[in-house]
Amino acid sequence: MAKVKISDVAREAGVSLGTVSNALNHPEKLRPETLKLINETINRLGYLPNQSARQLAGGATKSFGLVLPRLDHGFSLQIASGAHNEARKHGYDLLIANADNDDILEDHYLRYFMGTQMSGVMVQPMAFPDWHPAMTKMPVPIVHLDIHCSEPGYYVAADNEAQGRIIAELAIARGAHHIVVVGRAAFMQLTLRVLGIHKALALHPDIKIEVIDAGEWNTAADGYGIGNQIAERPADERPDFVVGLTDVLASGVVSALVDKGISVPGQVRVAGCDGNPLAWSGSVPLTTVAPPGYEIGRKGIQLLMEQIENKAPTKTKHIHVSSAARTVTAVTAIEDINRQELVRPFLLERASTQASSQTDATAINLGAYL
């Protein structure tokens, strides 16, 4: 069977080659009925655009790449959803790669996307506390997600310090006297959550705080083991509030306490700290502080578009503050830009921390705590 050409599509649909080209590359320029006619013709004839030829002709594809550290966490899935919808709004496709928690694989996919002439790339890195961008000279626009950094670049992150502060404020409001924080602060995000907790509790020296620096962030079994240790303590040495640096750890703690006959939240309240819907299926609905991953993905695409559309930024320094996120822009030259968006998290309180009379989950905006 002869390969279908773009000219075949144009002839069959009764339109020009330029109109078919617009349908493929700039569909927003066509009337809906014309676009529908061309797409139906493409599907009927089985036409497949030559992506390599399009790259050679145009220098870049109308696609963005997104490198995620994992696809088994609700936060990353929310990022992907927000990025996809925003990319389509601007006429771009989104291709997603799973780095499987491997920084070498992450770097491989990042370079692969750049080598295939993507219009831009976003990456959610596995960020250790001393993280810095692996590549300083980027051939295409790039945005780093869920990361805080003072080096030049474009970044969108959840306010992780605020996440810790909000959950600590909740513990204070619920009358906690002894708070245990569980989890190893192996990554920048977790370190900032611990910092936020300590800052909030610094104003309450009468509250005892204890940090159990153990457990993998994504392993419920580790949370279960730590929960068992807490349950085995004498009642007068047991905390009345436990904070998991991740929801997976917190859900493991809840399961262990319940299995040991300790009431949650009657005797011990438990909360997570990263808004992972995949960890919310336990016997006691889990309180958490949820970073809006959808908004992070959406804003990441917006920063890619900003780089594409504004290739020559001004040299004046300025600071802009918006209601949805704190945006700081310091511009001296294109290579000196540090564009950092901090997206507000929100408290989602459920049964694991509520008083017995409270039955419905409540979402409290961070603004109440600022």
Rank of each mutant, 00 (worst) to 15 (best):
residue 267 Q to R: 06
residue 270 V to H: 01
residue 229 Q to P: 00
residue 300 G to I: 11
residue 225 G to K: 13
residue 230 I to L: 15
residue 264 V to F: 00
residue 303 L to D: 07
residue 227 G to R: 00
residue 297 G to D: 05
residue 300 G to F: 10
residue 257 L to T: 03
residue 275 G to V: 05
residue 225 G to D: 14
residue 293 G to Q: 10
residue 313 P to R: 12
residue 280 W to Q: 11
residue 309 E to N: 15
residue 289 V to Q: 14
residue 245 L to C: 07
residue 231 A to F: 02
residue 226 I to R: 01
residue 260 K to Q: 14
residue 259 D to G: 08
residue 253 V to D: 03
residue 262 I to F: 02
residue 245 L to Q: 05
residue 239 P to R: 12
residue 239 P to W: 00
residue 248 V to E: 12
residue 235 A to N: 05
residue 229 Q to T: 15
residue 310 N to P: 11
residue 278 L to R: 08
residue 305 M to S: 04
residue 226 I to H: 02
residue 224 Y to W: 11
residue 304 L to Q: 10
residue 228 N to I: 09
residue 288 T to V: 09
residue 301 I to M: 08
residue 264 V to N: 01
residue 238 R to P: 06
residue 295 E to Y: 14
residue 232 E to M: 08
residue 278 L to N: 06
residue 270 V to A: 04
residue 235 A to F: 14
residue 271 A to P: 04
residue 261 G to S: 06
residue 233 R to P: 01
residue 252 G to V: 08
residue 240 D to I: 08
residue 302 Q to L: 08
residue 255 S to R: 15
residue 269 R to K: 11
residue 281 S to D: 06
residue 229 Q to G: 09
residue 249 L to I: 08
residue 224 Y to M: 14
residue 252 G to P: 03
residue 280 W to Y: 04
residue 275 G to A: 11
residue 280 W to E: 10
residue 281 S to P: 01
residue 290 A to H: 13
residue 254 V to T: 06
residue 298 R to S: 12
residue 268 V to Q: 01
residue 240 D to K: 08
residue 303 L to W: 09
residue 237 E to H: 15
residue 293 G to K: 06
residue 223 G to F: 00
residue 284 V to W: 09
residue 303 L to M: 10
residue 240 D to L: 06
residue 307 Q to T: 12
residue 312 A to E: 14
residue 269 R to D: 00
residue 236 D to I: 07
residue 250 A to D: 03
residue 254 V to D: 01
residue 225 G to Q: 08
residue 235 A to Q: 14
residue 232 E to F: 01
residue 289 V to H: 15
residue 274 D to H: 08
residue 286 L to K: 08
residue 312 A to I: 14
residue 224 Y to D: 07
residue 263 S to Q: 05
residue 244 G to P: 04
residue 274 D to V: 04
residue 314 T to L: 07
residue 291 P to R: 09
residue 286 L to T: 07
residue 236 D to Q: 15
residue 310 N to D: 13
residue 243 V to W: 00
residue 286 L to C: 09
residue 295 E to C: 07
residue 265 P to L: 11
residue 283 S to F: 03
residue 254 V to L: 04
residue 294 Y to M: 06
residue 252 G to D: 02
residue 227 G to Y: 00
residue 282 G to R: 10
residue 308 I to E: 15
residue 255 S to F: 05
residue 241 F to H: 02
